[in-house]
C-alpha cells in the first residue's frame, strides 16, 4: 500500500520532470477540448433555437356561439395553468370581430385604397364564437401521445365546439425532434471519437520523452503496473487539467459572447452544452490520458 501511494505521488511529481513537454501537451489537450466544446456550444444553440421555433404545437379552441362568457373566461383561467403552455391568446366574440375587421382592413382595404372596415354596428351582436389560441412547447418523451391527450382534453371541455390543430407546425416540431435524435448524438459521438484520438495520441507522444525511463525501469525488473501507475496518474491529471481549462475557457466565451449574435436577423443566444455533454468534455480527456499512458507501456 505504501508503494501504491508512493507511485501515485510520483505520478504527480513527474508532471514537473519535463515541464515543457507537459505544458505543450496540456495546451494541445486544452485546445482540442475547447474546439470540441465550441462545436457542442454551437450545436446546443442551434438545437435550442430550432426547438423553440419549430417544436411548438398550436391549438385553436372554438366555443359554441352564445356560450356564457363568464363560464368561458373561467375556463381560460384554467387553461393558463396547463403544462408546457408557451402562450395563450383569447378572443371574446367582440374581440374576434375587431381582430377580423382589422385583419381584413390590412389585407384588402389598404391594398385597394379603401378606408378601414367599420363593424361597430355589430357590437354586442357578434356572430363569431369565443376562441383561444394555445401555443405549447412540449418536452415530452412521447410527444405524439401528449398531443393526442391534450387535444382530447381540450375537446372535452364544456361548451367547446371544436379544436383545430396546426398540423404543419406540429409536423415540423416532430420532424426536428426526430432529426435531433439522429443528428445531435451521432455528432457528439463523432466529436468524442476525434477528441479521444487526439488526446490519446498527444499523451502517448508526450511519453516518448520518458521512453528511456520506461526502458530502464523494465531493465531493473519493474513490473508493468509499477511503471504504468505513475504514468497513468500523470496522464489522467493532464487530461483533467486540459479538460478543466477548456471548460473554463468555454464559460468565459459564453459569458463574454452570449448575446453577441442576438441581433437581427440572427437573434441567436449562445447556449452552453447540456450537463451530460459538458461532462464528456472532462471525462474523455481523463480516460484517454489514462488509456494513452497504458498503451505507451504496452510492449516490453
Amino acid at each position: 500500500m505504501r508503494t501504491f501511494f508512493r507511485l501515485l505521488g510520483r505520478g504527480v511529481a513527474d508532471l514537473f520532470l519535463h515541464p515543457w513537454a507537459q505544458l505543450l501537451s496540456m495546451a494541445a489537450v486544452t485546445l482540442v477540448v475547447f474546439l470540441s466544446g465550441l462545436l457542442l456550444m454551437a450545436l446546443a444553440t442551434v438545437d435550442a433555437e430550432l426547438s423553440a421555433s419549430r417544436g411548438e404545437t398550436v391549438y385553436q379552441v372554438y366555443w359554441r356561439p352564445g356560450t356564457d362568457m363568464a363560464h368561458v373566461r373561467g375556463q381560460w383561467e384554467e387553461l393558463r395553468h396547463m403544462p408546457w403552455l408557451a402562450s395563450l391568446e383569447t378572443y371574446s366574440p367582440d374581440e374576434a370581430l375587431t381582430a377580423l375587421a382589422r385583419r381584413m382592413g390590412e389585407t384588402t382595404g389598404q391594398a385597394a385604397g379603401l378606408p378601414a372596415l367599420d363593424m361597430g354596428f355589430l357590437s354586442g351582436k357578434s356572430p363569431l364564437p369565443p376562441t383561444a389560441l394555445l401555443t405549447f412547447a412540449p418536452r415530452e418523451a412521447d410527444p405524439e401521445k401528449w398531443a393526442a391527450d391534450t387535444q382530447t382534453f381540450l375537446k372535452a371541455m364544456p361548451g367547446v365546439e371544436r379544436v383545430a390543430a396546426s398540423p404543419l407546425r406540429d409536423e415540423l416540431g416532430k420532424a426536428w425532434r426526430a432529426a435531433s435524435r439522429f443528428v445531435i448524438w451521432p455528432t457528439v459521438g463523432f466529436l468524442g471519437v476525434v477528441l479521444a484520438l487526439v488526446v490519446g495520441n498527444t499523451v502517448r507522444l508526450t511519453l516518448s520523452t520518458r521512453r528511456e525511463e520506461i526502458e530502464i525501469l523494465q531493465l531493473v525488473g519493474a513490473r508493468n503496473w509499477y511503471i504504468r501507475l505513475p504514468l497513468m496518474v500523470a496522464g489522467a491529471l493532464q487530461g483533467l487539467l486540459g479538460g478543466g481549462l477548456a471548460c473554463l475557457l468555454l464559460l468565459v466565451v459564453h459569458w463574454r459572447f452570449r448575446t453577441a449574435l442576438n441581433v437581427p436577423p440572427l437573434l441567436l443566444e449562445l447556449r452552453l452544452p447540456p450537463p451530460e455533454q459538458a461532462a464528456l468534455l472532462l471525462a474523455v480527456p481523463v480516460l484517454m490520458g489514462i488509456l494513452g499512458s497504458w498503451i505507451a507501456v504496452r510492449s516490453r
Partner: peptide, 24 residues
C-alpha cells in the same frame, strides 16, 4: 512471459555501454 521477465531481471543485472541512467 510478460509476468516472468521482471522476475528474471531481478536476478540478472545489465550494464550497458551507454550507461542508461536517468539524467534528471
Amino acid at each position: 512471459s510478460g509476468r516472468t521477465v521482471p522476475l528474471l531481471r531481478r536476478q540478472v543485472s545489465v550494464v550497458f555501454q551507454d550507461f542508461k541512467i536517468l539524467p534528471e
